[in-house]
Simulated assay, not measured.
Amino acid sequence: MFEDDDEPGKGRRDIEKMPIYKKGWVIFDLADKIASLANDEEEYAALEETELGLLRHHADQLRNDAMLICPKIAGAEGGDLYAIRMENATIIRKVTREVQTGCSGLELWGFKHSEYLELLRKEIEGFRLLFAEWVKTFDPWNYSLDRWGLFNPPGINYDDLEL
């Protein structure tokens, strides 16, 4: 995945310089901080065991979802083929939307630091804009036939013969 710059795809250092990659790390750092705060024993000592468990579950899930963003960006950039890039982009979109939903879940279960949730939501909105521009750079004609039919260029069907 991280080959020299004369190979297809981008090198690790090129990927690490990408604004979308950097923003992905900002999102992870915030999610990690939120999960740490949700696991503070003293701060949430008044919650019932079930509520505490749900709060921590949502916080851990938020962190786990955010953790996938940067590796999937790297996978899309390193893979270069349209189907690989789109598959990774689809996962990124899914997990960032799960992070947004997770913020609401944390509020529901009594997370006390709503300012971090608002900051995370703002960072995700900034990420969304970068993401939409990034996906526009994918070349649909740099493809191998996707027999599952999800990520073929327009007019190419899953049952077409490969040329």
Results as ranks from 00 to 15, higher is better:
1 M>Q: 12
4 D>T: 07
7 E>F: 07
8 P>W: 08
9 G>D: 10
10 K>W: 09
12 R>H: 07
17 K>I: 01
20 I>G: 00
21 Y>F: 15
23 K>T: 03
24 G>R: 11
27 I>Q: 03
29 D>V: 07
30 L>A: 04
33 K>N: 09
37 L>A: 15
37 L>Q: 15
39 N>L: 07
45 A>M: 03
46 A>C: 02
46 A>M: 04
47 L>C: 00
50 T>F: 14
51 E>D: 13
52 L>F: 15
57 H>P: 05
64 N>P: 07
66 A>V: 02
68 L>G: 00
68 L>R: 02
70 C>Y: 07
71 P>S: 05
72 K>C: 07
72 K>E: 10
73 I>F: 09
77 E>V: 00
77 E>P: 06
79 G>T: 09
80 D>T: 14
84 I>H: 02
85 R>V: 07
86 M>H: 02
91 I>S: 07
93 R>I: 04
94 K>D: 13
94 K>A: 13
95 V>Q: 07
96 T>A: 00
98 E>Q: 15
99 V>Q: 02
100 Q>P: 01
103 C>F: 01
105 G>F: 08
105 G>M: 06
106 L>W: 09
107 E>I: 09
108 L>E: 14
109 W>G: 03
112 K>G: 02
116 Y>V: 08
117 L>G: 11
118 E>G: 12
119 L>V: 05
119 L>K: 11
120 L>G: 08
121 R>G: 08
122 K>W: 09
125 E>G: 00
125 E>H: 03
127 F>E: 09
128 R>Q: 14
130 L>V: 03
130 L>E: 15
132 A>M: 13
134 W>Y: 15
138 F>Q: 04
142 N>I: 10
142 N>T: 07
147 R>G: 05
147 R>F: 08
148 W>M: 01
149 G>M: 01
149 G>L: 01
149 G>V: 03
153 P>N: 11
155 G>P: 12
155 G>D: 10
157 N>E: 11
159 D>E: 15
159 D>W: 15
159 D>G: 07
